[in-house]
Design a protein around this nucleic acid. Structure first.
Lengths: 339, 339
DNA sequence: CTGAAAGCGCTTACAG
DNA sequence: CTGAAAGCGCTTACAG
């Protein structure tokens, strides 16, 4: 049972391959009777288009690369779901790679675009080497590279992100409204744009609320569970402990709380803790986590739509260049008035 | 800056395209001096192979589809990492799709193989329709379809899975050794092969240990957090509550514990609870979860290696057909002797 | 509305 | 060791 080609269909339908091709991709331009004959022939032969051939001919890979920092990070799964939904609607496939593996295999990221494996890429990694970044920036394909969640200050890549600063203000004000006046912040990684946006806005908002802010109340972290544990130790060691802690990610908050619980410190009774992201587990955590929700499905869908627009109509004038999506406060049980 | 082709390289190196192609794919067959000239020309022209062209010519997609039930499920991320590692070593790309999206887009799963989008597929979804399954089974491409974690009773697909039955015995005996004599089981989905393997073995082991087993002690679930919550309510409602509960997944166990904590029932003081899988969060959960660890990285790597062997040498006689990987007991804080 | 023909960029027998 | 040539399976101007 060899797979049949356009030729086979053409022979059975007694038309040219050109006509079969048209019937399949643009049925309106052929006559009713031709359309019927071709569909019949397609059915009889069990024809499936050969995408490798179509890709070569149309100079399109019909696929998009999604670059993750780390495949094992569950933060990204819902974003992938959103991306994949849009791509698959448009007949595109989703290729996945992690930065580390691309690097280890000796490839350059730009190769994916150059060698016709992908028509564009969505980068979810804020940790690209300057060298890699420079290479992307200089390439003519740069306009088919889009950042989601992360972005690059100074570079002109299209991007999708959430309202990091507004989310931070909402978080601080939630704690303030509960009555907290001494609020600490556990940051994400020092050199990360998201992390810095949240940290800067945290400081700005604390200042504008005229609250005290000791330098030790900004506790350095890196978005991970284990950094959250370490941050908790730092908080425990403080003489003058803030009554509330705003963590730059849910994972940080969970690690923070887990470590506190090992020291018999109760959340929210002894200290209020909140996160950022609203990952799936935030709701099931004990206590369920108060956090700032990012709509990750929408981030994924928006990123895919913006990229597809650039792929399909590359020279369009008014392409959306940046989307900043709203966030919302989700109040659960890890925050309460200070006691 | 148009991308250059083999032709361009050939022109610069003053050889034929055939020679350039050989130099790139099989350097040993060309002369030293040719090799130098060609590499030089490749550098000068910035040549990148066009994979669409190569794929068409070699009748290989150089990519593998990984099918997930649900992109948003973090259980799979480490498996993907393992798969991707092996694929990328061999110059293959990883395509990701979810069963639902394939279905919604009106495609058939087998199309991915038929239309030259993928050379093989790894299925991580145990929920395929009978119809879809039948179509895969009958297809000549069936030998390039491999199941991982999940498998299909009766069908002859190659598969990779962990020692579900042995893991279950280890779990039951861990609880038994702690002194528990009344042990409940929260199952996975009713029609799932993994779930049933674990349930059947649970019953067998309880029986062989000559322990009591009331019908209500087998609590139906479906691997999810929320099913775990419901199972906890069922357990709470029992007159004669088992002192230990073996859950068929970590997510179930976490939901179970979360719900108990809402009712002020302490784990492990009031009841011991353990899971299965050892997902990333098991360690950070409160209390850290005792569980049976599946090495998901190894599952992914093994699956990819087995599939690649079938793709590269399809007619090999002694291809490995099934791999069953070991599991191990990870003792943390959610289990203790009964009080 | 339809067909003949060129060509996308490679690889690979075949011949030398 | 190397080259000329065919061909993978499509799509798309061009001509009618």
């Amino acid at each position: 049972m060899k797979t049949s080609t356009l030729q086979d269909v053409a022979r059975v339908a007694k038309v040219s391959t050109a006509t079969v091709s048209r019937t399949l991709s643009n049925p309106d331009v052929v006559s009713e009777s031709t359309r019927r004959r071709v569909s019949e022939a397609v059915k009889v032969t069990g024809y499936r288009i050969n995408r490798a051939a179509r890709n070569l001919r149309t100079r399109r890979a019909h696929s998009v690369l999604v670059l993750l920092p780390d495949l094992a990070n569950p933060f990204f799964s819902t974003i992938l779901e959103g991306i994949s939904r849009i791509l698959s609607q448009q007949g595109y496939s989703m290729l996945i790679a992690s930065t580390k593996q691309v690097h280890d295999s000796g490839e350059r990221l730009i190769d994916y675009l150059d060698d016709a494996r992908a028509d564009g890429m969505i980068i979810l990694d804020g940790w690209l080497d300057d060298e890699v970044l420079q290479m992307l920036k200089d390439a003519p394909q740069a306009e088919r590279v889009l950042f989601a969640c992360e972005w690059v200050d100074g570079a002109n890549f299209p991007s999708v992100r959430c309202e990091n600063r507004q989310g931070t203000r909402i978080a601080v004000n939630h704690l303030y409204d509960l009555g907290h006046r001494k609020i600490a912040h556990v940051t994400g990684p020092e050199t990360n744009v998201i992390s810095n946006a949240r940290k800067d806005e945290f400081i700005a908002e604390i200042t504008s609320l005229k609250l005290a802010l000791e330098p030790e109340w900004i506790i350095p972290g890196d978005f991970s569970l284990s950094a959250g544990c370490q941050a908790a130790q730092a908080w425990i060691a403080l003489n003058d402990r803030p009554t509330a802690v705003f963590c730059a990610s849910d994972q940080l908050a969970m690690g923070f709380i887990a470590e506190l619980s090992r020291h018999d410190i109760k959340v929210p009774n002894d200290v209020s803790v909140m996160g950022f992201d609203d990952i799936d587990l935030a709701e099931q955590f004990i206590p369920p986590l108060t956090t700032i929700k990012q709509d990750r499905l929408m981030i994924g869908e928006t990123a895919a739509k913006m990229l597809m627009a650039r792929i399909v109509t590359p020279n369009e004038e008014n392409l959306e260049h940046a989307a900043v999506l709203p966030v919302s406060l989700v109040i659960r049980d890890s925050t309460s008035p200070p006691t």
